[in-house]
Nucleic acid binder design. Structure first.
Lengths: 332, 332
DNA sequence: TTGCGTTTCCAAAACGTTTTCGGTTATAGT
DNA sequence: ACTATAACCGAAAACGTTTTGGAAACGCAA
C-alpha cells in the first residue's frame, strides 16, 4: 500500500537507520550512499509519515488556530489574520489546524486538553475577550500560545495587537488638522481591552492637540452598526456643537454616516468622521470613510513568528504592538 | 510527562487492552471494570493521543481544506465556506487543516502527496479554475475529495456548487418583472465554469421571459470592480437602450453603479441592476444592491457532509447543486 | 469426570518513524 | 605489525495506541 521507509531501505540495500539519516541530512552516512538513498526515495515517491514522525519526536509541527467567534458572515478581522498565520507558519514548516472554542466546549474538554490530545505544538488564540472564561486557561497552561488582540502575558503566553492608543491619537490628530475643535468619541464595548486603550489614546491626544478634554463627549456603541447610529444620535443630542467624531470601529462609523444622512448632516463639512479597522466596506460607502487601518495580516504573521521562536529557540513570550495606519478618504 | 493508556491501565489494575476497549465502548469488558477504568481515566485526565491512534488506525480523522487563492484581503467567499466546513466536520469528529496550493507548490510536491504525508483522510478543494493544473490531479487521485464551485466528478471526487443557471434565471426574472425589456449581461471571466452556467441561465431566461435574445448584450468584466465599470460602459455604448443589467458578481455590479453615478444614470429608474454573490458590501452601497445570494456557508457544510459520507459509508461522490436566492434591495 | 460455550481479560504484534548504542571497516600513526 | 582513530552503518528500542489470537474462569450438560 503505502511506501514506507522500510521499502526505501530494502530497495537501496541499506538499513532503515541509514535511510532516515540520509534523508534528514545527518552526518554519519557516506556521500554516495546518501545519494543512492535519495535517488531511490524519489524513485519510489516516498513521503515520510508525519504521523509516525510526530509520535516518536513528540512534536507535530502543527499548531492550532483557536477562534472563539467562528460564525458565518463573521469577522472581517479573522480572515486576514488567518492567512497571515498560515503563510508564515507554512514558511517555517508548520501546519495549522482550526480549533473552535465551540467544538471544544461541546466535547466538554478544555481547549488545552483539546490541543494536547491532537499533539499540537502551540496555539494562536483569536477573538477572546477579557471576560472570557478562557483567559485563565490561556495564561495558566504550559501550552505555548500567543494571543491576538488581547494583552495576556505569562510564562508560556505572549500577545500581539495593534497599537490602539497611537491609532486613536492618529485619528484625533487628523480631525484636529482639519480644524475640528469639539471632538467626540464613539467607543466600542466597555469591557474590551482595545476599547480602554483607544479611550486612553483619545484622551491623551485631545489634551495634547486641543487642550481641553470633556468626557461627556465619549459614548458607547458596542461595535455594531445600530450601536453606532444610536451612539452618534446620543452624542449629538448631548453636544450639538461637536464638529468631528472618532468611531472605535468602521461598522459603528458607517452607522454614524447613516444617521448623518437621515438627519441631514453633511459629512465632512458639518461633521468630520474617522473610523477604525479599515474594513472592505470603508472605501465603498459614500462618502468614503477615512479610517485607521489595522495591520491584520501582519498581526497573524507576527503571532506566528513569535510562537515558533518560542518553540524552536526557547525565546520568552513577549508583547508586541503593531503600528496602525491612517488612511485618508473623504469623511475627514 | 504525558499520561498514557499504560498509566491508566496500571492505576486501574488492568491491561492496556482492557483500557482501550473500555474507553472505546467495545463489548467484551465487564461492566464494573469498564466503570472503574472510565473513572480512573477521568481522574488522571487521560486524553488518548490522536497521533498514536492515527498511526495504528491508518486514518487521522483530519481532512484538508485546500485553498488555491489564499491571499490577504482575499475572497469574501472563502470565509463562510471555511466555517461551514469546519462546523460540520467538527460535528462528525474531524479536524481540518489548512492547505494552500502555494506552499505545496513551493515544496515541489503535488498537493496529493502533501496530504498523504500528513495522513489526511480527504480534502475539500476551493478556489480552483478549469484551467488550473490541479484539476487533473484532483480527478485522477484516489484521495477522496470534494470540489467547491467546479463540476469535477470522478471515482473519488465529488463537487458542490450553487445552481448558477437558476441564479441567473432568478436575476432576469426579477428584472423582467420590474418592466425591463432590453437586458444586458456583464459576465465574469470567460474560462470560469460558473460564467458559462450563468450565461446559459441568462440566455434561457431572456428567451423565455422576453422572447428575443441578442447576444451583443453580453460583455465581459472578469469579476473585478474596474472590469464592471468598463464593461457597463461598453455595453451602454453598444446598446444605449438597455434598461436592466445583470452582473455576474457584486463587485462588478458595484463598479457598474459607480459608472452610473459618474454618467448621471439613475438606478434603478433609468437602469435596473442585479448582482451575484451577496457580498457584505451589497447592502451598504447606495443604492443598496439587489443580488443573487450564494449559500456559501451551506456549500461548506454540504461539501463536508459529502466527504464524510464517502469516507465512512463508502458512498459514491456526487454533484450537488445548491439553490441561490434572490435578495431584493434597491437597485432592481 | 469430561467436554463445551461464554464471558472476561491479557500478551504481543503492529503502525512508521527516530535515535541510541554499538559494531565493522578503512585509514593512519607508531 | 599493531593499535588508535575515524567513518560508516545496523539492530533494536521507543513513541502511544488498536487488535488479534488465545487463555483463564466459570457454568452447565452429558
Amino acid at each position: 500500500m503505502r511506501v514506507t521507509i522500510r521499502d526505501v531501505a530494502r530497495a537501496a540495500g541499506v538499513s532503515v537507520t541509514t535511510v532516515s539519516r540520509a534523508l534528514n541530512g545527518a552526518q554519519d552516512v557516506g556521500e554516495e550512499t546518501r545519494q543512492r538513498v535519495i535517488e531511490v526515495a524519489k524513485q519510489l515517491n516516498y513521503r515520510p509519515s508525519h504521523v509516525a514522525r510526530s509520535l516518536v519526536l513528540r512534536k507535530s509541527q502543527n499548531i492550532g488556530l483557536l477562534v472563539s467567534d467562528f460564525r458565518k458572515g463573521g469577522h472581517h478581522f479573522l480572515y486576514d489574520v488567518l492567512v497571515g498565520v498560515h503563510d508564515t507558519l507554512a514558511e517555517y514548516g508548520y501546519d495549522v489546524t482550526l480549533v473552535s472554542t465551540d467544538t471544544a466546549r461541546q466535547q466538554l474538554v478544555s481547549y488545552v486538553d483539546f490541543c494536547r490530545a491532537r499533539g499540537l505544538d502551540g496555539v494562536i488564540v483569536t477573538g477572546i475577550r477579557l471576560d472570557d472564561p478562557y483567559v485563565e486557561e490561556v495564561v495558566e497552561s504550559t501550552l505555548p500560545s500567543v494571543v491576538i488582540d488581547l494583552p495576556l502575558l505569562s510564562r508560556h503566553c505572549g500577545y500581539v495587537m495593534t497599537d490602539n492608543v497611537n491609532g486613536a491619537r492618529y485619528a484625533v490628530r487628523r480631525l484636529v488638522s482639519r480644524g475640528c475643535r469639539r471632538i467626540g468619541f464613539v467607543n466600542g464595548a466597555a469591557h474590551a481591552a482595545v476599547s480602554r486603550e483607544r479611550l486612553r489614546g483619545f484622551e491623551e491626544a485631545v489634551r495634547q492637540y486641543v487642550g481641553v478634554y470633556d468626557d461627556r463627549l465619549v459614548v458607547y456603541g458596542d461595535f455594531t452598526l445600530e450601536g453606532g447610529q444610536r451612539a452618534l444620535a446620543e452624542l449629538l443630542a448631548r453636544a450639538p456643537d461637536v464638529d468631528g467624531v472618532f468611531f472605535a470601529s468602521d461598522l459603528m462609523a458607517i452607522g454614524g454616516l447613516q444617521h448623518c444622512r437621515a438627519a441631514g448632516i453633511r459629512v465632512p463639512e458639518d461633521l468630520a468622521v474617522v473610523g477604525f479597522d479599515d474594513i472592505d466596506l470603508a472605501r465603498f460607502v459614500t462618502p468614503a470613510l477615512t479610517t485607521i487601518a489595522q495591520p491584520r495580516y501582519e498581526m497573524g504573521c507576527e503571532a506566528a513568528k513569535m510562537l515558533v521562536h518560542m518553540l524552536e529557540k526557547g525565546e520568552m513570550p513577549s508583547g508586541t504592538l503593531l503600528p496602525p495606519q491612517l488612511v485618508v478618504r473623504e469623511t475627514a
